[in-house]
């Protein structure tokens, strides 16, 4: 005997994602989901972004890592709120974890929630967390072939932050190639070239973040 089901396998995650999205809208919170490889500089981008926008907007961070509070502590040192999710080995965050983490933050004191996903270019792409915008971080040291190798993640992003551009002079990293490859996969992708260390190009990213969060 056969039965037809035709139900979404990740329906439970989607239900939580839809609820999160509704909640963010109601609270007037702008939420972004940051995805990248380990070591691309997500946490440094965040600490510098928080410091540079300190008097303009209040940012809280939900950190995802397999283990340790290291990243959340780095965020807290800036004075911002941070909650660490330890996935105990899972390679991505899911929407239910975000729902639970939201109760750990003082949301009345926040304008923006940044979810720093587990460093991984494959698995987080499939899990909607309820974010409004998805930000993909690619650092120049990783090589300029990542669009070709991990196209699904590029296809689902809204913003591409090309980080560590201060290092391009030491590397064979073709920025034009990455931009061209990325645009083939995703016509609507916005690309910012930045260095969170030298702060080069950070203005464009900060302006986008401020403008997007104020639209809420």
């Amino acid at each position: 005997m056969k039965i037809k089901v035709n139900k979404k396998i990740l329906a439970k995650n989607e239900d939580f994602a839809v609820a999160n999205r509704k909640f963010f809208k109601k609270q007037g919170l702008f939420c972004i989901n940051m995805i990248s490889s380990p070591g691309s500089g997500k946490t440094t981008i965040l600490t510098e972004t928080i410091k540079l926008l300190k008097n303009k907007i209040r940012i809280g961070v939900i950190e995802g890592d397999l283990q340790t509070e290291i990243d959340a502590e780095r965020i807290r040192k800036t004075g911002a709120q941070a909650y660490q999710i330890e996935t105990q080995g899972a390679c991505h965050l899911n929407a239910e974890q975000i729902t639970n983490a939201l109760s750990k933050l003082d949301l009345e004191k926040l304008d923006i929630i940044v979810i720093e996903n587990v460093g991984n270019l494959v698995c987080p792409a499939d899990f909607d967390l309820g974010e409004e915008k998805r930000v993909f971080v690619l650092s120049t040291a990783e090589g300029d072939d990542k669009c070709a190798k991990y196209p699904q993640s590029f296809a689902k992003a809204d913003i591409l932050l090309l980080n560590k551009i201060d290092l391009t002079k030491y590397l064979d990293f073709d920025i034009a190639r990455v931009k061209k490859d990325a645009m083939k996969l995703n016509k609507n992708l916005k690309i910012f070239e930045i260095s969170a260390k030298t702060l080069e190009g950070m203005d464009n990213w900060l302006n986008w973040l401020l403008k997007s969060s104020k639209k809420k």
Binding site: M1, K2, I3, I9, K184, L185
Partner: peptide, 26 residues
Amino acid sequence: PTCPDCDSGDIAIGADAPLLLEEIEF
């Protein structure tokens, strides 16, 4: 991600199918 015929990279990509449980057989 280019056209197999003219090699253009300007492609209108349709909607992707979701992960679906279609059928169970007992």
